[in-house]
Every structure is written in C-alpha cells, then in structure tokens.
C-alpha cells in the first residue's frame, strides 16, 4: 500500500481526534466524580470531626455519630474478606488448574458467570431463608458477612480465573519438567504470578460489598445501635473471642439512608459526613490491596 501526503494527514487527524475524544471523556467522568465528592465534603462541613466518629446515633443531629456503623462496616467486611477471598481464589484455581474439561465444569462456569449478574436483593432473600431461618445464624454480623461474601464470590472467581489464564503455559511446563507436582506448581508459580490480577479482583469485590444496603436490610440490619459488639480480644486466655459474630449490626450505608430520610434537615449533613467516612474506609481498604499488589509485582522476575 502506498502512502501519499493526504492519506497520512487523514490518518493523523483520526489519531488526534481519537486522543482528544478520549481526553474529553476522561475529563468528563473525572469531573463528575470530583464534583460529587466535593459536594459530599461540603455538605458534611462541620460534622466531620472526632465527635462524629466516636459517638453513637442520637436524636440530636449535632450529637449523633456513626461509631456503631463504622465498627459494623469494618466487622462485616472482615467476615466477607475472610470467606469470599479464600473461597473464591480456591475455586478459581480449581476451575483453571484442576477441573477436567467436561460438561459439568462447563455448567459450573456458566452458572458462576450468571451469578455475577443476580441482583443483590435476591441474595438478601436467599440469605434470609437459608442463613437466618434455616441455619439460625440470626440477624448477626456473621449472616451479613456471609451474605456479602456470597454476593461477591463470583467476582473473585472470575477475576482469579482470568489472571491465572494469563500465565504462559511454558511456566507450568517448566515446573513440571523439574519434577514439581501440580500443587507445587500452583503454589510456587501460578498463584504468585497471578496475584496482582487476583488482588485487583479482590478490590472490586470488596468495594462492591461495602456499599451494599438492600441485602442487609432484608436480613435484618438495625438502624439504631447504641453499643459496640463484644470485643474480639480479651485479657484472659484464650485472648480471642468470636461473640461479636453473633452481635446485631448496622453499617454505614444503612445509617446514611436512615439519616437522609429524617424530617430534620440537620441530619442530612450527618449523612454526607457518613458518606465521607465510607469513602475513606473504602480508599484505605483499596490502598492496602494496591500496596500488596505492588509488592507482589515487584517480586515477579520473569
């Protein structure tokens, strides 16, 4: 194909045009995000202080705080992370590295992909029937964590599988050639190399879970809690204590919703402040995962 001057000019126009379009789109979406966050922070002005973080809910807007909701969100997220991540990663590894290629595996794969699209309220109803009524786990932190864990499980599985699939087969073959077992190959090579992709999936999954309200309302989240769950650490042996798993709970999105719908407009500033706190928690959680991802990438040497 020959290039004359006009054709090359035309191609450059398209190239620049696309660049500009992309830049405008990014600016637009970032602009919306920045505006929203700025408005949230402005609305929360005056309420975002230590008192807000350390006080329980109250009928007086200026005395009300989000302590029980913050602790509730953290505990529920802990349960979710401890169930969804190990289970999801293990399932992903199994499906990619161990499962035989047959109709059963195909069926499982299709179902996992479909589960990722199930509306969250359906998970809530399922959890109400199974976890609350059948297994008698109560309206507890444990039920909430498991519900959200199930909700985000497909995300973890799918992202784990994608990142494992990106590992060149040569790596596996090299490991086998040196006499490694399948498990040794997975543990020492496949998992470490795919860790950054898996952690990205974990970030997406946890960020989705932390903002959920509907399934938690269904399984019986509270709107007013004026005390904290029993502490997970004790001074006497055995030092740890899992009673908090059975405690009633509330989380930040529910507390926010409750404040937004109050008659007294002063509470709306509280809702905005709770939104900022939720953002901070999400960013901290993601920062942690990004840090881990950075470390795992740095150690990669091939």
């Amino acid at each position: 194909m020959g290039f004359d001057g006009s054709q090359s000019l035309w191609r450059r126009v398209i190239d620049t045009g696309f660049l500009l379009l992309g830049a405008v789109l990014i600016a637009l979406s970032l602009g919306v995000l920045v505006t929203l966050v700025a408005e949230l922070i402005m609305d929360s002005a005056g309420r975002l202080n230590w008192q807000f973080v350390s006080a329980f809910p109250s009928r007086f807007a200026e005395r009300a705080g989000a302590k029980s909701a913050i602790v509730g969100t953290c505990l529920v997220m802990l349960v979710t992370a401890c169930t969804a991540l190990p289970l999801g990663i293990a399932s992903g590894v199994y499906l990619e590295e161990y499962a035989p290629r047959n109709w059963l595996t195909a069926l499982i794969e299709i179902n996992i992909a479909n589960l990722a699209g199930v509306p969250s309220i359906i998970w809530g109803l399922m959890a109400l029937g199974l976890l609350v009524y059948q297994l008698h786990l109560g309206h507890s932190v444990l039920t909430a964590g498991l519900t959200l864990g199930l909700l985000v499980l497909p995300i973890v599985i799918v992202s784990t599988r994608e990142s494992i699939r990106a590992i060149p087969n040569g790596i596996r073959e090299a490991a086998y050639a040196l006499g490694a077992t399948r498990w040794q190959t997975v543990w020492h090579h496949v998992l470490p190399y795919s860790m950054s992709g898996i952690l990205t999936g974990a970030i997406i999954a946890m960020s989705r879970a932390i903002g959920e309200t509907a399934p938690l309302v269904t399984i019986g989240a509270m709107a007013y809690i004026g005390f904290l769950p029993p502490s997970p650490v004790h001074q006497q042996p055995p030092y740890v204590n899992f009673e908090w798993l059975w405690s009633n709970f509330t989380v930040l999105p529910i507390q926010m919703y409750q404040w937004v719908s109050r008659p007294n407009p002063d509470f709306h500033a509280n809702a905005a402040a709770a939104g900022v706190v939720l953002l901070i928690i999400t960013l901290t959680m993601n920062g942690l995962a990004i840090g881990l991802r950075y470390r795992s990438r740095r150690r990669l040497s091939w």
Partner: peptide
C-alpha cells in the same frame, strides 16, 4: 494457605454461644 480462614467461621457455627 489462606483458605484456613474460611474454615474458622464455619467451625464456629457448631459453637453457637448462647446469645
């Protein structure tokens, strides 16, 4: 391996403390 963590809450189901 991390999946040990997943077993912990499951084991607790059996040890339901009186609420």
């Amino acid at each position: 391996f991390r999946p040990m963590w997943g077993v912990a809450p499951a084991a607790l189901l059996l040890a339901v403390a009186a609420q």
